[in-house]
Each structure stands twice: as structure tokens, then as C-alpha cells.
Simulated assay, not measured.
Amino acid sequence: MKNTMKNLAIVALIAFTALSFTKIANEKKEIKTDKSKVVWKGYKVTGSHEGTIDIKSGFLSFNEGKLVGGEVVIDMTTLGSTDLQGEYKGKLDGHLKSDDFFGVETHPTSKLVFTKVTASGKNAYSVTGDLTIKGKTHPITFMMSIYGNKATASLKIDRTKYDVRYGSTSFFDGLKDKAIYDEFDLVSDLEF
């Protein structure tokens, strides 16, 4: 009986010591979609267009206060321009949602899954992730800054990797002033 109690005490002490030195599990913080914003900007030879797109869901993962992962799902059905009004806005928004661009009816969401996060400063991180648009996935690297419960990130995306070819001089000759540049920008302000 004495040996049994002694063995139980030793096992309890070992378990307590092991748990004391175990790393704290990642803390997953949900992105507040109603307080977060994603702005896009696309460029063409004769100017540019910009607009917004909503986040459907997402989270950032932290370990001991440091960013270690995350995932963001974008609701492609909310894609819309903010620099036009009326008929012109309707035409551009419809064209962006068509198969010429993002094929929203077939691909209603896009997704970014963080695969590697490296601290590059006090509140700055270099993030590599797998970006999926129109069912095609490619790696992308971008910078993210975090201050309290807010994060900002800017991404430059080559649309041609995701089969968004309309108006691209990489695929079509003779476009002249109708050409649309292959890269577009996304700027996100997240709250979690």
C-alpha cells in the first residue's frame, strides 16, 4: 500500500512537471468579418479600378502572442467596384464576376491558407500561404503587421496564375490601350 501511494505520487509529480514545460497550444482568434475590410485595385493601360470584397470567414493563430498561422475565406459574390456608379458600375461588377474574370457562379469563394510565418520585426511577419482562386492554388508571400487585435496586409497577385486571362498581354496580342495588367493588389485591414 505504501509503495502504491509512493508510485502514484511519483507519477503525479512527473505528469505535473511534464505539463508545466509543454508549450501552450496555439490560440485561434476568429476574424470579425463585419469589422474587417479588403480593398482590391486592378490596373489597365488607361487607368485603374478599385473596389471591395468581403471576408466570409477566417482566423489567425498565435502562440505566446506571436503569429503562427491563419486562414481567410473570401466571399467572391461580394466583389464590387467603388470607383464607378450606376450603369458603369453594374457592367464592371458583372464582368468581374463572369467567367472572363473570376467565374463567381462556379467559384463563389477564394481561400488563403498560411503555410509559413516568420517574424521580420516587432509587429511584422513574412507570411507564405497557399492562395486558391477559381480552383487553382499557388503559393504567395506577403508582409503582415499586427497591432493589438488588428492586422494589415498587402498582397500583389498575378491573376494569370489563376486562369484570369481577360485583357492580358501575356495571352493576347494587339490589345493596345485595352490591355489589363496581370497583377492586381489586395489590401486587407483585419480585426479579430
Results as ranks from 00 to 15, higher is better:
K35Y: 09
K35W: 09
S36N: 03
K37D: 13
K37V: 12
V38H: 02
V39G: 02
V39F: 07
W40T: 14
W40G: 11
W40Y: 14
W40K: 11
K41C: 10
Y43G: 03
Y43D: 15
K44P: 11
K44S: 12
V45G: 03
V45M: 11
G47F: 00
S48E: 15
H49T: 08
H49A: 06
H49N: 05
E50C: 02
E50Y: 11
E50W: 13
G51N: 04
T52S: 10
T52F: 00
T52E: 12
D54W: 09
D54V: 05
I55L: 12
I55E: 02
K56F: 02
S57D: 12
S57W: 00
G58L: 07
G58V: 08
F59D: 10
F59V: 13
L60Q: 04
L60F: 15
L60V: 15
S61R: 10
F62E: 03
E64H: 01
E64Y: 11
G65A: 01
G65N: 01
K66Q: 06
K66R: 09
K66A: 11
K66L: 02
L67S: 05
L67H: 03
V68N: 12
G70C: 13
E71Q: 14
E71A: 07
V73I: 15
V73D: 08
D75V: 06
D75A: 10
T77K: 14
T77A: 14
T77L: 10
L79Y: 08
L79K: 11
L79I: 13
L79F: 09
G80F: 01
G80V: 03
G80M: 03
G80P: 06
G80H: 08
S81P: 06
S81R: 03
S81I: 04
T82S: 12
T82L: 04
T82V: 08
D83F: 03
L84P: 06
Q85F: 08
Q85C: 05
Q85A: 15
Q85S: 15
G86T: 13
G86S: 12
G86P: 15
G86A: 09
E87P: 09
E87L: 09
E87V: 13
E87Q: 12
E87R: 10
Y88S: 14
Y88V: 12
Y88A: 15
K89E: 05
K89T: 10
G90E: 15
G90M: 13
K91W: 08
K91H: 11
K91N: 13
L92Y: 02
L92M: 03
L92P: 04
D93L: 09
D93T: 11
D93H: 07
G94F: 12
G94P: 07
G94H: 11
G94E: 06
H95Q: 13
H95G: 07
H95I: 00
L96G: 08
K97L: 05
K97I: 07
K97R: 13
D99F: 00
D99T: 10
D100I: 04
D100M: 02
D100V: 01
F102K: 06
F102I: 03
G103C: 00
G103E: 08
G103N: 15
V104I: 10
V104S: 04
V104Q: 00
E105M: 02
E105R: 04
P108E: 04
P108W: 00
T109V: 10
S110G: 06
S110A: 15
S110F: 14
S110R: 09
K111G: 10
L112C: 06
L112I: 14
L112F: 15
L112V: 13
V113H: 01
V113F: 09
F114L: 02
T115F: 03
T115L: 02
K116F: 06
